[in-house]
Design a binder for these strands. Structure first.
Length: 984
RNA sequence: GUCCGAGUGGCGAAAUGGCAGACGCGCCAGACUUAGGAUCUGGUGCCCUUAACGGGCGUGCGGGUUCAACUCCCGCCUCGGACACCA
């Protein structure tokens, strides 16, 4: 039961009543603190009460159009469902055992403020938070604490939930999920099967069910790889062909093997210096049979659709660079081996990829990656006549040279290979290629600066326009011919800029871009190559040899070919094992083998199933999915968390995520309306999630083509940390500032800034802040300290500013002695009314733009004005508007004040104040008057004064006249409503 | 090395072509007080000067465009981030 303002003393359950009884007791407040002052104790009480109220009322339950979460007809939720929807999402947190520090909730508070503001504007808002709880850290934490990860995970989630609840986040708790819940990972496995059971149709440029490919092959509408008619192939051959086309496939290929973690990793999880992003262990390339996801099939769409997204420029740029699309040409070079008895013998041609086919007349060599498959076919028995000694690497034969070079290249660690300024190395293979445009004989080398994984693993050396090739040419004394005219005065080596073609036969005189196209045309016409596109993006390595992850819904029969389970057989539960910690190795021991923990669950691995061929014994896949899997689609389960028949009902998905061309334009891809999180997920999570979403779109499961329409990267909270003379971190909370220096237990210490964490001994927790000031103060401080996207240092002592603001607001509305409203029904004076409505206008705009810091500043200004203007009783219209405007930021105190002002209903859905246009216009305007760029005077004129009268008033001003002097000014500029400038 | 972002009081910041420093912390002064690390009121960019007024300088550095530049353009410096032999 909620109370009305006039009957405060009659209620027993109202938050306000208990508050008074507590705060008036002596041990809670010093003797001279008024009984109804807004203190931390009172704040905490109000906060607990309203959190309970919101929970019991289901205040933040967002109704779905259909299904279990649909609104009861006639309920308040049904009314809510009438409004336009808004889907707000935070990046999936991992429930850490270490607990939260004040940096963690920054984004959660921001989305909560935004969501609450939207509710007050009539939107039906979906906002919840789930937990991404599979993965290495959870497993490592469990190993550390000696408990099963399921137990520690559950415990950590419970802790985090209660920590976040204390902040008053308006989440729909019915929609919270955890990736580790079998009811959730069933759908992770289901999507995996969708991907596994699909292929990419290049013609239609979309994924299609694999059955449709089988059908096409069977009917001959599509040819098998070698043209053999489908029915002449054995069942096993047919399966192999099909499996090779799937979007999820097993591949025996060089992968990133990390002995220190005992698992393989994706490219995205390996840092530039060849180490694991997690744990910083060395990573080695090993040939292993692993699951891959054919994300490369989506490379073009993943690049192109970035243009449709409302994302930070930097993130789209990072994705673009990661996908690394470049347009160029494939050029085929015929090769010859000149040392056979017959003179010259043909060897297989070599394809190179180049983005500058126009420079081919300057080509002086062909260089292959050391691992290139054709290297061995090129090697003559002995060095060709005239081979310069420094091309041979000191070896007696080409075979010997290549072997030695390969061994040396393999011995170079990833770190050394990256070292800047590393000299180019390589050896001659003894083979020659023929330049297709002029028949010139070009030596073929191998060199480790050519990467097997990019393009075709072979390049043509064009030193005039490529620095690497220039270096290589100098090293091996190869001729250098420029084919693009460098600008006058250019004194560098390779010239990689634009220019006009020279030394290039029929291309001479063409500007560079036209020469490129002309050469592509020539190559295709003469059968020597074709225009082509290459990507840096590789397929996504999708299996891990760990315990704490989603098992694959895949089994094998005797053929060792993967077989999908049926949907009805999901979820495949993670088996209990005695030893769930993975087998890890000495981090530098590359010659080790992954040993998945699941392989040890013999009873689980071997399974009897009927998959359409009668009951047979199968072997389960013993890998688990990477921890990115669960976060690739979680917004879809937020939408329909209890749906056990479907991933999510298409009606619900289209309601929450479908394209809204009327609101967002004709190209709108749909997706979550606002997605807030750290920039560290710019490539990994956001790329994977876009990929999965597009597959689901192709297969007709979702109506949006992108998962996240608008992305916002929040900054980080840095924290000061202090080191003593030995460089050891000391407890930051015990450091005091003395005369501009810092001191800990009497000894001077040095300040630095870093991440908040145990190792820097500088953790500040939300609980500490709530205990000292209350959650509302904490929220206002975090939102007020700067722009959301900027990182900034935490300063505990500054939090009090936010607290004083809320105290003042409280005092504007209530009497600190009695707790009753001290407001008047009299109208606000003109000045206050204008300030109020300017504030409403400004706060609205700031809220929409996520500029909460300036919104708070405006609210403080208004509060300060009202405090001074109405020391005894503020006008109700002003006080109520202030309470409503502060509500998204400090919801508990706002609810409490709103109730004490006599409102029976929560203000969660009360209308956010609207500015009255009449009151936004002032009747007079003060203009600063500048003379030669300096403000020399001020004039006040009626708001509707025309330019001429403003000008006249400015020149008439005494001070201004003093600077202008007797002669007429050269120029007078009036910027309406802004400033007058006089030039003399 | 390449690309991206940032540089404003003692500190966090505001102003995106029109009065630089809103708002907050801190600091100074005052009120209340046994007390103040609570709360309230006022002041507070730097320098010169005054009894009061007033004046000069000032947004990393150097140049430019403009009546007017933190804001736009060119060059540089510093810091942070991403990528890093991608042909």
């Amino acid at each position: 039961m909620l109370l009305s303002a006039n009957r405060t003393t009659e209620s027993e359950t109202a938050p306000s009543e208990t508050a008074r009884s507590e705060t008036s007791s002596a041990e809670l407040a010093p003797a001279d603190t008024p009984p109804y002052r807004y203190t931390a104790q009172l704040a905490e009480h109000i906060e607990r009460t309203w959190q309970q109220h919101w929970e019991s009322e289901g205040t933040f339950h967002a109704p779905n159009p259909v299904g279990e979460l649909a609104a009861e007809p006639g309920s308040s939720a049904a009314k809510r469902a009438q409004g336009p929807k808004l889907f707000v999402q935070d990046m999936f947190p991992y429930p850490s055992g270490a607990g939260l520090h004040v940096g963690h909730p920054l984004g959660y508070i921001a989305t909560d403020v935004y969501a609450r503001f939207a509710r007050m504007n009539g939107r039906n808002v979906l906002h919840t938070l789930g937990y991404d709880a599979f993965g290495l850290p959870a497993e490592q934490y469990a190993v550390q604490t000696g408990q099963h990860p399921a137990i520690t995970t559950e415990h950590n989630i419970a802790t985090m939930r209660s920590q976040l609840r204390a902040l008053g986040l308006g989440h729909d708790s019915r929609r919270s999920i955890a990736t580790t819940d079998p009811g959730y990972y069933r759908w992770t496995q289901w999507i995996f099967l969708q991907i596994f059971n699909s292929w990419y149709d290049e013609e239609q440029d979309k994924a299609r069910p694999i059955d449709e490919l089988v059908e096409q092959l069977r009917l001959g509408a599509r040819l098998t790889p070698d043209g053999t008619p489908w029915e002449q192939l054995s069942a096993q051959q047919q399966r192999q062909i099909i499996n090779d086309r799937r979007l999820a496939y097993l591949s025996e290929a060089p992968v990133n093997w990390c002995p220190g973690l005992g698992t393989v990793l994706s490219n995205e999880e390996v840092t530039a210096d060849g180490r694991s992003e997690r744990g910083n262990f060395p990573v080695f390339k090993r040939n292993l049979r692993q699951w891959m996801m054919r994300i490369t099939a989506y490379a073009d769409r993943l690049v192109d659709d970035l243009a449709l997204l409302d994302w930070p420029e930097s993130v789209t740029l990072m994705q673009r660079n990661w996908i690394g699309r470049s347009h160029g040409a494939r050029v085929d070079f015929a090769t010859v081996n000149e040392t056979t008895a017959e003179g010259a013998a043909a060897t297989p041609p070599i394809s190179v990829f180049t983005t500058r086919p126009g420079t081919i007349f300057g080509c002086n060599s062909v260089v292959l990656a050391p691992e290139h498959l054709l290297v061995n076919t090129l090697l003559p028995p002995h060095w060709p006549d005239g081979t310069p000694p420094h091309w041979t690497g000191g070896a007696d034969t080409p075979t010997d040279a290549v072997e030695r070079y390969r061994a040396a290249a393999a011995a170079v660690s990833a770190v050394d290979r990256q070292a800047t300024g590393r000299a180019k190395t390589g050896v001659f293979t003894g083979g020659f290629a023929l330049n297709p445009v002029n028949g010139q004989r070009l030596p073929i080398f191998i060199a480790d600066y050519v990467l097997m994984g990019y393009g075709s693993g072979a390049v043509m050396g064009v030193p005039g326009e490529d620095e690497r090739d220039w270096e290589f040419s100098e090293r091996f004394e190869l001729p250098i011919i420029r084919t693009v005219q460098p600008p006058e005065g250019f004194d560098g080596e390779a010239y990689e800029g634009d220019g006009v073609m020279i030394n290039s036969d029929f291309l001479n005189g063409l500007p560079w871009p036209q020469a490129k196209q002309a050469m592509i045309d020539w190559l295709s016409e003469h059968g020597h190559g074709a225009g082509t596109v290459t990507y840096k993006l590789r397929d996504w390595l999708f299996s891990r040899q760990r315990y704490w992850g989603e098992p694959f819904p895949i089994v094998y029969d005797d053929d060792d070919q993967p077989i999908a389970l049926n949907d009805a057989q999901l979820p495949v539960l993670l088996p209990e094992v005695d030893e769930y910690s993975p087998v890890t190795y000495e981090p530098h021991d590359a010659a080790t083998e992954p040993a998945p923990p699941l392989a040890k669950a013999a009873d689980w691995v071997s399974v009897e199933l009927d998959l359409g061929e009668g009951v047979k014994t199968y072997r389960r896949d013993v890998n688990v999915m990477p921890n990115w899997a669960g976060s690739c689609y979680y917004q879809l389960r937020y939408i329909d968390p209890a749906n056990s028949d479907q991933l999510c009902d298409p009606v619900n998905e289209r309601y929450w995520m479908g394209p809204e061309p009327l609101r967002h334009g004709a190209d709108d891809p749909g997706g979550v309306d606002l997605y807030v999180g750290g920039v560290e997920h710019a490539v990994l999570h956001l790329l994977y999630a876009r990929f999965w979403h597009k597959v689901l779109y192709d297969l007709g499961h979702v109506g949006s083509t992108e998962p996240y329409r608008r992305l916002f990267n929040q900054g980080y909270i840095q924290a000061p940390a202090y080191t003593d003379s030995r460089g050891t971190y000391v407890s930051a909370s015990e450091v005091v500032e003395i005369d501009g220096g810092f001191s800990w237990q009497g000894q001077p210490v040095r300040r630095e800034y870093g991440k908040m964490g145990k190792s820097l001994k500088n953790v500040v927790t939300p609980e500490q802040m709530c205990g000292e000031y209350g959650a509302d103060t904490f929220r206002v401080y975090e939102m007020g300290m700067g722009p959301l996207e900027a990182s900034r240092p935490w300063e505990s002592r500054a939090v009090v500013g936010a607290h004083r603001f809320l105290q003042r607001l409280w005092r504007v509305v209530l009497d600190e002695q009695t707790g009753t409203p001290r407001i008047t029904d009299a109208a606000a004076n003109r000045l206050t009314g204008q300030l109020l409505h300017r504030t409403i206008e400004g706060v609205r705009a700031d809220m929409v733009g996520l500029r909460f810091n300036t919104a708070i500043a405006k609210l403080i200004e208004l509060t300060n004005h009202v405090t001074v203007t109405y020391p005894n009783a503020a006008p109700r219209e002003v006080a109520e508007a202030m309470v409503l405007m502060v509500a998204p930021l400090a919801p508990h105190i706002a609810e409490e004040l709103w109730q004490r002002l006599g409102h029976a209903e929560s203000l969660t859905y009360a209308p956010f104040p609207q500015a009255d246009p009449q009151l936004l216009i002032a009747e007079t305007i003060e203009y600063p008057v500048q003379v030669n760029g300096k403000v020399r005077g001020r004039i006040t004129v009626p708001a509707d004064a025309d330019e001429a009268s403003v000008r006249a008033a400015a020149l008439a001003d005494e001070k201004v006249a003093g600077y202008v002097g007797a002669s007429a000014p050269k120029k007078v500029i009036v910027i309406p409503g802004r400033i007058v400038t006089v030039v003399v």
